[in-house]
Design a protein around this nucleic acid. Sequence first.
DNA 1: TCAATTAGTTAAGTGGGCTTAAATTTACAC
DNA 2: GTGTAAATTTAAGCCCACTTAACTAATTGA
Lengths: 153, 153
Amino acid sequence: MTDTVQFTQVLHEWSEIFMRRSMNDLVYFTRQAGLSMSQLGALMRLYHGGACGVSDLGEHLGVSSAAASQMIERLVQQGLLERSEHPDDRRIKRIAVSAAGRQLIAEGVAARRQWMESLTHALTQEEQALIIEALKLLTRAARQQEPSHAAQS
Amino acid sequence: MTDTVQFTQVLHEWSEIFMRRSMNDLVYFTRQAGLSMSQLGALMRLYHGGACGVSDLGEHLGVSSAAASQMIERLVQQGLLERSEHPDDRRIKRIAVSAAGRQLIAEGVAARRQWMESLTHALTQEEQALIIEALKLLTRAARQQEPSHAAQS
DNA sequence: TCAATTAGTTAAGTGGGCTTAAATTTACAC
DNA sequence: GTGTAAATTTAAGCCCACTTAACTAATTGA
Protein backbone atom coordinates (compact mmCIF):
# COMPACT_ATOMS: atom_id res chain seq x y z
CA MET A 1 0.00 0.00 0.00
CA THR A 2 1.50 3.35 -1.01
CA ASP A 3 1.65 6.13 1.51
CA THR A 4 -0.88 8.20 -0.38
CA VAL A 5 -3.45 5.43 -0.39
CA GLN A 6 -2.81 4.68 3.24
CA PHE A 7 -2.97 8.39 3.99
CA THR A 8 -6.49 8.64 2.61
CA GLN A 9 -7.48 5.47 4.43
CA VAL A 10 -6.17 6.59 7.79
CA LEU A 11 -7.57 10.08 7.42
CA HIS A 12 -10.92 8.58 6.58
CA GLU A 13 -10.88 6.34 9.61
CA TRP A 14 -10.01 9.21 11.91
CA SER A 15 -12.56 11.51 10.33
CA GLU A 16 -15.28 8.92 10.80
CA ILE A 17 -14.79 8.61 14.51
CA PHE A 18 -14.16 12.32 14.85
CA MET A 19 -17.26 13.28 12.90
CA ARG A 20 -19.46 10.85 14.77
CA ARG A 21 -18.37 12.29 18.05
CA SER A 22 -18.53 15.90 16.86
CA MET A 23 -21.94 15.52 15.28
CA ASN A 24 -23.26 13.92 18.43
CA ASP A 25 -22.00 16.78 20.54
CA LEU A 26 -23.25 19.31 18.03
CA VAL A 27 -26.76 17.90 17.96
CA TYR A 28 -26.84 17.72 21.73
CA PHE A 29 -25.59 21.26 22.09
CA THR A 30 -27.97 22.83 19.60
CA ARG A 31 -30.93 20.97 21.03
CA GLN A 32 -30.05 22.08 24.51
CA ALA A 33 -29.67 25.65 23.27
CA GLY A 34 -33.06 25.48 21.56
CA LEU A 35 -31.55 25.96 18.12
CA SER A 36 -32.01 24.18 14.82
CA MET A 37 -29.15 23.14 12.60
CA SER A 38 -30.02 25.91 10.15
CA GLN A 39 -29.97 28.48 12.89
CA LEU A 40 -26.63 27.24 14.13
CA GLY A 41 -25.32 27.43 10.59
CA ALA A 42 -26.40 31.04 10.30
CA LEU A 43 -24.92 31.90 13.67
CA MET A 44 -21.62 30.25 12.78
CA ARG A 45 -21.48 31.94 9.42
CA LEU A 46 -21.91 35.35 11.01
CA TYR A 47 -19.53 34.53 13.81
CA HIS A 48 -16.73 33.50 11.50
CA GLY A 49 -17.51 35.56 8.45
CA GLY A 50 -18.52 38.74 10.24
CA ALA A 51 -21.61 40.87 9.81
CA CYS A 52 -23.37 41.02 6.47
CA GLY A 53 -26.70 41.76 4.82
CA VAL A 54 -29.77 39.56 4.72
CA SER A 55 -29.40 38.44 1.12
CA ASP A 56 -25.68 37.83 1.60
CA LEU A 57 -26.40 35.47 4.43
CA GLY A 58 -29.06 33.68 2.44
CA GLU A 59 -26.67 33.27 -0.43
CA HIS A 60 -23.99 31.80 1.83
CA LEU A 61 -26.49 29.37 3.30
CA GLY A 62 -27.98 28.51 -0.06
CA VAL A 63 -31.49 29.78 0.62
CA SER A 64 -33.64 32.65 -0.65
CA SER A 65 -33.42 36.07 0.94
CA ALA A 66 -36.98 35.59 2.19
CA ALA A 67 -35.92 32.47 4.06
CA ALA A 68 -32.90 34.28 5.46
CA SER A 69 -35.07 37.17 6.60
CA GLN A 70 -37.41 34.84 8.45
CA MET A 71 -34.64 32.92 10.15
CA ILE A 72 -32.87 36.11 11.16
CA GLU A 73 -36.11 37.36 12.66
CA ARG A 74 -36.36 34.27 14.86
CA LEU A 75 -32.75 34.60 15.99
CA VAL A 76 -33.19 38.30 16.70
CA GLN A 77 -36.22 37.49 18.85
CA GLN A 78 -34.07 34.97 20.72
CA GLY A 79 -31.54 37.72 21.32
CA LEU A 80 -28.75 35.98 19.45
CA LEU A 81 -28.52 38.34 16.48
CA GLU A 82 -28.71 42.10 16.06
CA ARG A 83 -30.12 44.03 13.15
CA SER A 84 -28.90 47.52 12.35
CA GLU A 85 -29.03 49.83 9.37
CA HIS A 86 -26.20 50.29 6.98
CA PRO A 87 -25.07 53.91 7.38
CA ASP A 88 -24.64 54.56 3.66
CA ASP A 89 -27.52 52.57 2.21
CA ARG A 90 -30.56 52.31 4.39
CA ARG A 91 -32.02 49.51 2.28
CA ILE A 92 -29.37 47.20 3.66
CA LYS A 93 -29.61 45.69 7.12
CA ARG A 94 -26.41 44.81 8.88
CA ILE A 95 -26.86 41.43 10.60
CA ALA A 96 -24.43 40.63 13.39
CA VAL A 97 -24.06 38.20 16.27
CA SER A 98 -25.09 39.76 19.58
CA ALA A 99 -23.13 39.50 22.82
CA ALA A 100 -25.48 36.73 23.96
CA GLY A 101 -24.95 34.88 20.69
CA ARG A 102 -21.21 35.21 21.03
CA GLN A 103 -21.37 33.80 24.52
CA LEU A 104 -23.47 30.86 23.40
CA ILE A 105 -20.92 29.99 20.74
CA ALA A 106 -18.12 30.36 23.27
CA GLU A 107 -19.83 27.77 25.44
CA GLY A 108 -20.01 25.36 22.55
CA VAL A 109 -16.37 25.90 21.77
CA ALA A 110 -15.45 25.28 25.40
CA ALA A 111 -17.34 21.97 25.36
CA ARG A 112 -15.42 20.91 22.27
CA ARG A 113 -12.14 21.83 23.90
CA GLN A 114 -13.01 19.73 26.88
CA TRP A 115 -13.41 16.66 24.75
CA MET A 116 -10.12 17.35 23.01
CA GLU A 117 -8.35 17.73 26.30
CA SER A 118 -9.76 14.41 27.43
CA LEU A 119 -8.04 12.86 24.42
CA THR A 120 -4.68 13.73 25.87
CA HIS A 121 -5.20 11.33 28.75
CA ALA A 122 -4.63 8.42 26.39
CA LEU A 123 -1.52 9.93 24.82
CA THR A 124 2.06 10.40 25.98
CA GLN A 125 3.88 13.71 25.64
CA GLU A 126 5.90 12.30 22.75
CA GLU A 127 2.76 11.18 20.94
CA GLN A 128 1.18 14.56 21.47
CA ALA A 129 4.22 16.28 20.03
CA LEU A 130 4.06 14.08 16.95
CA ILE A 131 0.34 14.81 16.51
CA ILE A 132 0.91 18.53 16.87
CA GLU A 133 3.32 18.51 13.96
CA ALA A 134 1.01 16.38 11.86
CA LEU A 135 -2.05 18.50 12.49
CA LYS A 136 -0.16 21.66 11.66
CA LEU A 137 0.66 20.15 8.29
CA LEU A 138 -2.91 19.04 7.76
CA THR A 139 -4.31 22.42 8.71
CA ARG A 140 -1.97 24.18 6.34
CA ALA A 141 -2.91 21.81 3.52
CA ALA A 142 -6.62 22.22 4.19
CA ARG A 143 -6.32 26.02 4.29
CA GLN A 144 -4.73 25.99 0.88
CA GLN A 145 -7.83 24.30 -0.44
CA GLU A 146 -10.29 26.76 1.01
CA PRO A 147 -12.23 28.73 -1.59
CA SER A 148 -11.80 32.05 0.20
CA HIS A 149 -8.12 31.88 0.93
CA ALA A 150 -8.03 35.22 2.75
CA ALA A 151 -6.64 34.85 6.26
CA GLN A 152 -8.33 35.89 9.46
CA SER A 153 -7.18 36.25 13.09
CA MET B 1 3.28 26.62 26.17
CA THR B 2 3.20 23.01 27.34
CA ASP B 3 2.65 20.30 24.80
CA THR B 4 -0.74 19.42 26.22
CA VAL B 5 -2.02 22.97 25.93
CA GLN B 6 -0.61 23.28 22.45
CA PHE B 7 -2.08 19.91 21.58
CA THR B 8 -5.58 21.07 22.42
CA GLN B 9 -5.00 24.31 20.58
CA VAL B 10 -3.73 22.68 17.41
CA LEU B 11 -6.41 20.01 17.46
CA HIS B 12 -9.01 22.71 17.84
CA GLU B 13 -7.65 24.66 14.93
CA TRP B 14 -7.65 21.61 12.71
CA SER B 15 -11.09 20.54 13.79
CA GLU B 16 -12.47 23.96 12.99
CA ILE B 17 -11.36 23.93 9.39
CA PHE B 18 -12.17 20.24 9.07
CA MET B 19 -15.67 20.61 10.49
CA ARG B 20 -16.43 23.65 8.39
CA ARG B 21 -15.50 21.77 5.27
CA SER B 22 -17.22 18.55 6.33
CA MET B 23 -20.42 20.25 7.37
CA ASN B 24 -20.53 22.13 4.10
CA ASP B 25 -20.16 18.93 2.13
CA LEU B 26 -22.65 17.16 4.35
CA VAL B 27 -25.32 19.81 3.91
CA TYR B 28 -24.73 19.87 0.18
CA PHE B 29 -24.91 16.09 -0.07
CA THR B 30 -28.08 15.67 1.99
CA ARG B 31 -29.81 18.47 0.14
CA GLN B 32 -28.90 16.95 -3.18
CA ALA B 33 -30.13 13.56 -1.98
CA GLY B 34 -33.41 15.09 -0.84
CA LEU B 35 -32.78 14.20 2.79
CA SER B 36 -33.05 16.16 6.00
CA MET B 37 -30.39 16.12 8.68
CA SER B 38 -32.61 14.00 10.89
CA GLN B 39 -33.12 11.48 8.14
CA LEU B 40 -29.41 11.30 7.50
CA GLY B 41 -28.84 10.77 11.20
CA ALA B 42 -31.26 7.87 11.24
CA LEU B 43 -29.70 6.37 8.13
CA MET B 44 -26.21 6.67 9.59
CA ARG B 45 -27.26 5.22 12.89
CA LEU B 46 -28.72 2.15 11.19
CA TYR B 47 -25.79 1.89 8.81
CA HIS B 48 -23.20 1.87 11.57
CA GLY B 49 -25.18 0.38 14.41
CA GLY B 50 -27.04 -2.24 12.41
CA ALA B 51 -30.74 -3.03 12.30
CA CYS B 52 -32.92 -2.34 15.34
CA GLY B 53 -36.50 -1.69 16.39
CA VAL B 54 -38.48 1.51 16.01
CA SER B 55 -38.29 2.58 19.65
CA ASP B 56 -34.59 1.71 19.81
CA LEU B 57 -33.90 4.04 16.93
CA GLY B 58 -35.96 6.78 18.50
CA GLU B 59 -34.07 6.38 21.73
CA HIS B 60 -30.73 6.64 19.98
CA LEU B 61 -31.84 9.77 18.16
CA GLY B 62 -33.40 11.26 21.25
CA VAL B 63 -36.99 11.42 19.98
CA SER B 64 -40.25 9.65 20.81
CA SER B 65 -41.11 6.34 19.23
CA ALA B 66 -43.96 8.07 17.41
CA ALA B 67 -41.49 10.46 15.80
CA ALA B 68 -39.22 7.57 14.89
CA SER B 69 -42.12 5.68 13.36
CA GLN B 70 -43.07 8.64 11.20
CA MET B 71 -39.55 9.29 10.01
CA ILE B 72 -39.00 5.61 9.24
CA GLU B 73 -42.20 5.62 7.21
CA ARG B 74 -40.89 8.48 5.07
CA LEU B 75 -37.55 6.75 4.54
CA VAL B 76 -39.25 3.46 3.69
CA GLN B 77 -41.34 5.27 1.08
CA GLN B 78 -38.14 6.69 -0.37
CA GLY B 79 -36.78 3.17 -0.59
CA LEU B 80 -33.86 3.81 1.75
CA LEU B 81 -35.03 1.66 4.66
CA GLU B 82 -36.69 -1.72 4.98
CA ARG B 83 -39.17 -2.86 7.59
CA SER B 84 -39.56 -6.52 8.50
CA GLU B 85 -41.04 -8.48 11.36
CA HIS B 86 -38.99 -9.91 14.17
CA PRO B 87 -39.31 -13.70 13.88
CA ASP B 88 -39.74 -14.32 17.61
CA ASP B 89 -41.79 -11.30 18.65
CA ARG B 90 -44.17 -10.01 16.04
CA ARG B 91 -44.71 -6.77 17.91
CA ILE B 92 -41.17 -5.72 17.02
CA LYS B 93 -40.28 -4.36 13.58
CA ARG B 94 -36.74 -4.80 12.36
CA ILE B 95 -35.63 -1.58 10.67
CA ALA B 96 -32.65 -1.88 8.33
CA VAL B 97 -30.94 0.12 5.58
CA SER B 98 -31.95 -1.09 2.12
CA ALA B 99 -29.57 -1.73 -0.75
CA ALA B 100 -30.47 1.67 -2.20
CA GLY B 101 -29.80 3.31 1.14
CA ARG B 102 -26.46 1.58 1.40
CA GLN B 103 -25.53 2.79 -2.04
CA LEU B 104 -26.48 6.35 -1.22
CA ILE B 105 -24.23 6.30 1.82
CA ALA B 106 -21.43 4.80 -0.23
CA GLU B 107 -21.67 7.74 -2.62
CA GLY B 108 -21.36 10.15 0.28
CA VAL B 109 -18.33 8.31 1.58
CA ALA B 110 -16.74 8.40 -1.85
CA ALA B 111 -17.20 12.16 -2.04
CA ARG B 112 -15.49 12.53 1.33
CA ARG B 113 -12.60 10.39 0.17
CA GLN B 114 -12.17 12.60 -2.85
CA TRP B 115 -11.64 15.64 -0.70
CA MET B 116 -9.15 13.81 1.46
CA GLU B 117 -7.20 12.67 -1.55
CA SER B 118 -7.06 16.24 -2.76
CA LEU B 119 -5.33 17.14 0.50
CA THR B 120 -2.38 14.98 -0.47
CA HIS B 121 -1.52 17.34 -3.31
CA ALA B 122 -0.25 19.85 -0.79
CA LEU B 123 1.79 17.32 1.17
CA THR B 124 5.04 15.50 0.54
CA GLN B 125 5.39 11.76 1.04
CA GLU B 126 7.33 12.35 4.24
CA GLU B 127 4.66 14.64 5.60
CA GLN B 128 1.99 12.12 4.75
CA ALA B 129 3.91 9.40 6.57
CA LEU B 130 4.13 11.58 9.66
CA ILE B 131 0.42 12.34 9.53
CA ILE B 132 -0.44 8.67 9.13
CA GLU B 133 1.35 7.83 12.36
CA ALA B 134 -0.25 10.74 14.18
CA LEU B 135 -3.77 9.95 13.04
CA LYS B 136 -3.38 6.33 14.04
CA LEU B 137 -2.56 7.51 17.54
CA LEU B 138 -5.48 9.92 17.56
CA THR B 139 -7.90 7.31 16.30
CA ARG B 140 -6.79 4.87 18.96
CA ALA B 141 -7.17 7.48 21.67
CA ALA B 142 -10.61 8.50 20.43
CA ARG B 143 -11.78 4.89 20.25
CA GLN B 144 -10.85 4.40 23.87
CA GLN B 145 -13.23 7.20 24.74
CA GLU B 146 -16.21 5.83 22.86
CA PRO B 147 -19.12 4.87 25.08
CA SER B 148 -19.79 1.58 23.31
CA HIS B 149 -16.27 0.27 23.14
CA ALA B 150 -17.23 -2.94 21.32
CA ALA B 151 -15.37 -3.26 18.03
CA GLN B 152 -16.93 -3.70 14.61
CA SER B 153 -15.56 -4.63 11.18
C1' DT C 1 -58.19 -16.89 30.36
C1' DC C 2 -57.82 -12.37 30.87
C1' DA C 3 -55.52 -8.20 32.63
C1' DA C 4 -51.36 -5.77 32.24
C1' DT C 5 -47.41 -4.72 29.54
C1' DT C 6 -44.87 -3.82 25.36
C1' DA C 7 -44.09 -2.28 20.36
C1' DG C 8 -45.68 0.23 17.01
C1' DT C 9 -48.91 3.20 14.39
C1' DT C 10 -52.29 6.88 13.77
C1' DA C 11 -54.32 11.42 14.73
C1' DA C 12 -54.18 16.19 15.85
C1' DG C 13 -51.67 20.11 16.72
C1' DT C 14 -47.42 23.18 16.91
C1' DG C 15 -43.50 25.24 14.92
C1' DG C 16 -39.38 25.54 11.80
C1' DG C 17 -37.70 26.07 7.17
C1' DC C 18 -38.36 26.58 2.64
C1' DT C 19 -40.59 28.42 -1.66
C1' DT C 20 -42.81 32.01 -4.79
C1' DA C 21 -45.24 36.24 -5.20
C1' DA C 22 -46.55 40.67 -3.69
C1' DA C 23 -45.64 44.75 -0.95
C1' DT C 24 -42.49 48.21 1.11
C1' DT C 25 -38.73 51.22 1.51
C1' DT C 26 -34.63 53.36 -0.21
C1' DA C 27 -31.32 54.61 -3.84
C1' DC C 28 -30.11 56.09 -8.22
C1' DA C 29 -30.34 57.86 -13.00
C1' DC C 30 -32.25 60.79 -16.20
C1' DG D 1 -39.76 64.46 -10.00
C1' DT D 2 -40.45 60.16 -12.03
C1' DG D 3 -39.36 55.58 -13.16
C1' DT D 4 -36.49 51.67 -12.29
C1' DA D 5 -33.64 48.79 -9.60
C1' DA D 6 -32.21 46.83 -5.17
C1' DA D 7 -32.80 45.06 -0.23
C1' DT D 8 -35.85 43.46 2.72
C1' DT D 9 -40.20 42.03 4.62
C1' DT D 10 -44.79 39.95 4.57
C1' DA D 11 -48.11 36.53 3.11
C1' DA D 12 -49.65 32.07 1.65
C1' DG D 13 -48.70 27.45 1.18
C1' DC D 14 -46.08 23.18 1.54
C1' DC D 15 -43.38 19.59 3.87
C1' DC D 16 -40.78 17.83 7.73
C1' DA D 17 -40.06 16.98 12.71
C1' DC D 18 -41.70 16.77 16.90
C1' DT D 19 -45.12 16.26 20.77
C1' DT D 20 -49.06 13.94 23.39
C1' DA D 21 -52.92 11.00 23.36
C1' DA D 22 -55.53 7.38 21.63
C1' DC D 23 -55.47 3.06 19.34
C1' DT D 24 -54.13 -1.80 17.58
C1' DA D 25 -51.80 -5.96 17.99
C1' DA D 26 -48.80 -9.30 20.29
C1' DT D 27 -46.84 -11.10 24.48
C1' DT D 28 -46.59 -12.33 29.28
C1' DG D 29 -47.93 -14.19 33.44
C1' DA D 30 -50.88 -14.93 37.54
